[in-house]
Structures are given as structure tokens and as C-alpha cells.
Amino acid sequence: MSSSKKDDMIDKDLYEDLEPEEIKAILDEERRSKTKEKETPDQKKDPTFPRWVFGLIVFAVLLNGVAIFPRTFSIPAIDFLVTSHQLSQDETIQSHKESVVGVDTSEGRGTGFGISESGYVVTNYHVIEDETSVTVHYPEEGLFNGDIVKIKPEHDLALIKVDGDDLPYLPLAEHISDYSSPQSITFIGNPLNFTGIANQGKWIASSTATSLETDVMLLDAPVYRGNSGSPVINEEGQVIGVIYATRRDEEWGRVGLAIPVDHVHTLRESQ
């Protein structure tokens, strides 16, 4: 395992470079579909494959033409929407999503997650860089003003505090042991202007070849722009890492990168 520094691609798309027109078409169709759902609330919805996802596929085919039909179906955005819908049927995932927040800054939006009922939220440093305060959006509790109370640029982590009580939060694993074998993980975030998207993957390796002052976790997972700050959750429902970037690895290809939870504990304890 090399110890040389690598260029981590902060908040970049993984697996496939979607053209701006493709992203806009996907978002526009999803918004139209949600509007139709609100207009017909009494209609029964298919719990396994919602009509709006099928609409996305049809729309993409019409947009790009039948000649590239196979490529259209490989668009990861469609895959992660379908996967998120399926995962979100699980009550445990639904509960996890309540603790995952949007972090809005003057430059855009990232992801964060609550780590205490008193309103402490973790996100990436690069999400809130050059900001003194941000807007934090909880799925159920709504909007809060957030103060940045601690930063760790060397680990790309930041701690935000909002004024609130009994806020939802995710439990942190005490630490993560050295990598030994692939482990199934889930993660939740706000990629490509969507909110509360759940997805899954595997922790496949650890690496010292990073731009941060720490080893990082390599994830075989569909990480997208906006997933920065997403919690990596193990099968016991505990946070074991924080997504911050993607990279093309010499051995594994394109992977997501996550900061081990040990540094979240250090961030919290130093406050």
C-alpha cells in the first residue's frame, strides 16, 4: 500500500460524468412527477417501483434516442433513485434519514448528520469553508441557523451547533478496527440536489494514500456531488465514517472516500 499523496476529487461525481443537460432533465422530470403525485393523493402507489422512476427512464430514452438505449439504462442516477426508494421502505433506514440534514451555505448545499440530541451536527470542512454560519435543514424538524464551532481541515471535518432539544441523531461506533474484509454499508445524503437519498455499498479497503492527515476508507459505492458529509453506517446502525470525496484508485478504480469515525470523536471531544 503506497503512502504517497493522492489527489482526492472533492465532491465529484463517481462512476460516470453526467452532462449538465442530463442532470437537469432528471431533476425536472422528478419534480414534475412529485407535482403529479401531490395532485392525485388518493391514487395507490407501487411500493417497489414508483411511476416517477419509470417516467425518468422513459424520459431519458426519449431525450437521448433509441440508439443509445443501453447507455441510458446505465446512468447511475436512475440506479440510485431506484435503490434509495427500495431501501427507504425499511423502518430502520427511515429512522436514520431523520438524522441526516442538508447544510446550506452561500456556495451551495452539502450533507451533515446529527450526533447529539442537543443539536451538534458533523459535516465536511470543505462544505462550510469560509463560512461562519450555515442553514441546517432537518427532514422533520425544519430549518435551523447553525454556528460553526469547530473545524479540522486536516481531517476535512467540521462541527456545527444548532439551538434545539430532542433532535434526532445517529449513534457513533466507538472506533473502527483495521480493515480485514469487505463490509456492507449504507449511506444517506443529498446528491445532485435530491434530499435524503439512501444508498448502499461496501467498505473494500483502507489507504494511507490521501491528501488528508489520516488513513481513509475506500468505498465501492455510488457517491455523487452533494454526498460530502454523508454518514457511512454499518450493519449495526452505527456511523463508522464520513464521506468526503471520490478518487480513481490504481487497484480498485473509482471509489468513494470516507474519514474514519475516530476523527469524529476527536472533533467532538475537543469542543
Rank of each mutant, 00 (worst) to 15 (best):
2 S>R: 06
6 K>Q: 12
7 D>Q: 07
10 I>A: 09
13 D>K: 00
13 D>E: 13
15 Y>M: 12
17 D>R: 08
17 D>I: 11
29 E>H: 10
30 E>T: 14
32 R>W: 11
34 K>V: 07
34 K>S: 10
35 T>C: 07
38 K>Q: 14
39 E>N: 14
40 T>G: 08
43 Q>E: 14
45 K>T: 13
47 P>T: 03
47 P>V: 01
49 F>C: 13
54 F>I: 12
56 L>T: 00
59 F>E: 14
66 V>N: 12
68 I>R: 05
70 P>V: 00
71 R>D: 06
72 T>S: 08
75 I>K: 13
75 I>N: 10
82 V>W: 03
82 V>G: 02
83 T>V: 01
86 Q>S: 02
87 L>E: 01
89 Q>Y: 04
89 Q>G: 12
91 E>V: 06
95 S>H: 12
101 V>C: 04
105 T>W: 08
107 E>Q: 07
125 Y>A: 05
131 E>G: 13
141 E>M: 09
144 F>P: 00
147 D>H: 05
151 I>G: 05
157 L>C: 13
157 L>N: 09
158 A>F: 11
162 V>H: 08
163 D>F: 09
165 D>V: 02
165 D>E: 08
170 L>D: 05
186 T>C: 02
186 T>D: 02
188 I>P: 00
188 I>Y: 02
193 N>I: 00
194 F>Q: 05
196 G>K: 09
200 Q>N: 11
202 K>N: 15
204 I>T: 00
211 S>N: 11
212 L>H: 06
212 L>T: 07
217 M>C: 01
219 L>F: 06
219 L>P: 00
224 Y>C: 02
226 G>T: 03
229 G>N: 07
231 P>E: 09
232 V>L: 09
236 E>D: 15
241 G>I: 01
244 Y>T: 12
255 V>E: 03
256 G>Y: 05
257 L>E: 14
257 L>V: 07
260 P>F: 06
262 D>K: 10
267 L>E: 03
269 E>P: 03
